[in-house]
Design a protein around this nucleic acid. Structure first.
Lengths: 242, 242
DNA sequence: CGCGACATTGAGAAGGGTCAATCCCAGTGG
DNA sequence: CCACTGGGATTGACCCTTCTCAATGTCGCG
């Protein structure tokens, strides 16, 4: 069994050997040959927090897998008002197929590791391998579901419910131990207060006040302004409004 | 030319002959044989405004194309607060592949014509014909783009900007003459004031006040509470904030 | 005519926004 | 080692937009 496994995986590029995207991400839809083809033109990058990913020369004309860290997608109105429209965690696929310019900005919210490859290569593979398109469809539908939950949140929740919902979202995506059933969680916030505000449609000050309130009510503890500990996830979830 | 056309279309089911979904909708990805297969199990429905489409026996386990009218997708919080998370116009595809229950309610906002078919048939065809999956991916990505624009609107726009944006959206989707370049538009609102509120994250009263304001400023005219006339789309667009 | 659903309008309350002062803390350089 | 600096974060006071609650208006229809 393990021998067959080894034989099988011997055709997989070194670059991809330990890559999470090969399992849970889009690359899982590719066979060894395709992986080799893709790996030839792909490269891993490491960027620090704050770097623009889209509009930046490095990824124009290319797609990426997020290997670690958090990428923040934003849109702006003409007068500068900004809104975060999505967060991408590993092993999400980053990029908008079938469209030249996206009008969306992507920025590393934390230090981020990416595996990038030219648009053309992926688009060719999509034609050859329906499985890949299937994966992308699934991710798109998932993101659509998430976007719709976010719409409900923005449209109908109060400030304190928004902040609680945000913390739950982050806990679920960042703390590896915080599965649905885990009673507690502990994680670093990947965003500044003002980013969180841009995410929730609130101001920095309101986010701060709501965090203070949650802390005063002993729902969360905060260390170093960034690290959050939730002893009882249930209590936090009760404050999400849904 | 017209003869060849006729010969070619002779294989197309009567049901589909004049159907818009065959051109701009998902059925455009199917060849004549597949159309015949699909048409065998599909049927056109006409439902009146207010009918629940999902959760209702008629469409559980099935997908549909919207042929005419407007379908309203909503989600609710446990205490009853409601939010519209999407509107579907002809020839949109209605349904969420790869997921048993959607937690989303779909309701006819106006009288609606649908062409429905069992999930199983479409899902089989998706495996056979990559073109179909491609169409669905495109629609999903488009809806995702729209959802993100909506997120910006909900998170960052003022009540008056929201109402103006809503009117522009409807004008674009309902008034056949209102292409991007048309200077004026005229249409019936497919939603009640309170539905519009649920769409924009506002109350009925606020929607009403903003409409009154737009009318007072001669940006729009309203007849019979439902019919809206925009003489100068540019002026309306200027109030959208973007 | 009168009912019921939807829409408008008004007055008052409140949730968040705005502006400004202060705090906190990680670096940095003396 | 300590003071200084600068970028978040927090807190407070005040204000404004939007919500809430309630009254009134309008239209279609039996």
């Amino acid at each position: 069994m393990s021998i067959r496994q080894d034989v099988h995986s011997s055709g997989i590029p070194v670059l991809c050997q330990s890559c999470e995207a090969r399992h849970r991400g889009v690359c899982g839809a590719l066979d060894a040959d395709q992986l080799v083809g893709l790996a030839k033109t792909s490269s891993k990058h490491q960027v620090e927090a704050g770097v623009e990913l889209v509009g930046d020369a490095e990824t124009v004309g290319s797609y990426s897998n997020v290997l670690s860290g958090v990428v923040k997608l934003t849109k702006s109105l003409s007068d500068g008002r900004q809104q975060v429209v999505g967060l991408q965690f590993a092993p999400d696929f980053l990029g908008r197929p079938f469209k030249a310019e996206s009008e969306i900005n992507a920025e590393a919210a934390t230090p981020v590791a990416l595996c990038s490859f030219p648009k053309t290569v992926i688009e060719r593979m999509m034609k050859e391998s329906p499985g890949l398109e299937h994966r992308l469809l699934k991710q798109a539908l998932n993101e659509l579901d998430e976007a719709r939950d976010w719409i409900v949140m923005l449209g109908r929740k109060s400030a304190s419910e928004k902040v609680a919902s945000f913390l739950v979202l982050i806990a679920r995506n960042i703390d590896p131990a915080a599965n649905a059933s885990a009673p507690s969680a502990s994680f670093d916030l990947p965003l500044t207060r003002s980013d969180i505000g841009d995410f929730l449609g609130l101001t920095t000050e309101t986010v701060s006040r709501q965090l203070t309130r949650l802390r005063a009510e002993r729902v969360i503890r905060i260390e170093n302004n960034r690290h959050v500990i939730v002893d009882d996830m249930k209590r936090l979830e009760q404050r999400c409004g849904d």
